[in-house]
Design a protein around this nucleic acid. Sequence first.
DNA 1: CCCCGTAGTTAGACCCTATCACCAATGCGA
DNA 2: TCGCATTGGTGATAGGGTCTAACTACGGGG
Lengths: 220, 220
Amino acid sequence: MAAAQAEAEAGTPRQRYRAQVQQEIKKHAWEQIAAEGASALSLNAIAKRMGMSGPALYRYFASRDDLITELIRDAYQSLSDAVRGAASSGADIRGLAAALRSWALEDPQRYLLVYGTPVPGYHAPEDTTRHASEVMAALLDASGAEGLGAMPPSPLQEHLADHRAWAGEHPADSAALHRALVFWTRLHGVLSLELSGHFGGMGFDPAQLYEAEVEAVVGR
Amino acid sequence: MAAAQAEAEAGTPRQRYRAQVQQEIKKHAWEQIAAEGASALSLNAIAKRMGMSGPALYRYFASRDDLITELIRDAYQSLSDAVRGAASSGADIRGLAAALRSWALEDPQRYLLVYGTPVPGYHAPEDTTRHASEVMAALLDASGAEGLGAMPPSPLQEHLADHRAWAGEHPADSAALHRALVFWTRLHGVLSLELSGHFGGMGFDPAQLYEAEVEAVVGR
DNA sequence: CCCCGTAGTTAGACCCTATCACCAATGCGA
DNA sequence: TCGCATTGGTGATAGGGTCTAACTACGGGG
């Protein structure tokens, strides 16, 4: 609570007001993104909805890209919270998968902001990669758990044993590294195609495909 | 060749000129997309590079969205050609995977134009879904081939047996349907994350992960 | 109480898409 | 070969976007 106070109420009244307006801008930005996609986000439109003139927003965000970067940062933070929250409340790998899916469906455009098509040349700020690492760490924890079907040794696992920089200090064997990567890429494969509407009209239920992929990762 | 003539040289000189200019516009559009991404595509910039004024392009494409739709159409066509070409020259499921990957790496933005983040509310024209079906059909052919590791029966396969509208008239059993879906989603999972740069800095080789996923689909 | 920093304004430069009216050239039928 | 409708290209313009610059109004700390 002290932390919440420090974020929400600390400082001078001016700073509190500033933080409040920034939050409101972001709120409208998310609504607009959910409705029209990130590429259609317009500072002018946000300003009008807030009852002020366009250039006023530049007191709060240096540029449109700055605002979007901030939103991406928040999205990463939210994702990290969701999966680490699930992990810390005892969820196994299936639970993490469920948490990931419900986080994605809760706001598809938010998921696509993180994992969708990037602008060539865009470089994510430092702390987003930190959040990505946190998610990875939770995945690696779950991937190393006992009771999972054994992944047969493969050339990839030998490769991963030699290229595990991304795992940091995490004490996971190459089978766990492999499982974490497979968890990520397979679930992203189903989720992103579903959220992008590529399953639309095919007639089957994406949730069941997702479940099947989760079971395949677990090892049956 | 008769078909090529019909496309490239048929009709009056006016029609030939028109088709030629349209092709040149598309060429510049692809260059711009490859460099800056589809969201940064500008008709004005294309016109300037071609040495003419902005509004002139509207003689050839009714709107920016129209041009992009046409590019998506061409991308689908190109993808369909690539995988059906591989299939018709005797490639097995591994060959299809290799063809898909090399098609994707050849022009990442082209892949992302097809499978990347869509604009909410955008509806693909009819013939793109036709190309998607052709790709699916090639996949289903390969997925039904003998010599593949058996996919154990699962709840998903029962579901797919009842929801196979997307397979059309194709005589594939539910195991083949399952394998085709898994082929698509898993390889897309690796490819899209790779092309979006999410593996950047992780240190491992995406190609080896891709290969491992292909082997997993084949059934080892 | 004054004063300075901050929030907000309008004006404007420079992009973009898109439409319009007008001009020029081209190639077809008579 | 000539006339002329069709077609391609132009500048002007409307309207929206980002973003900068100059100016005004307010409110809290000295």
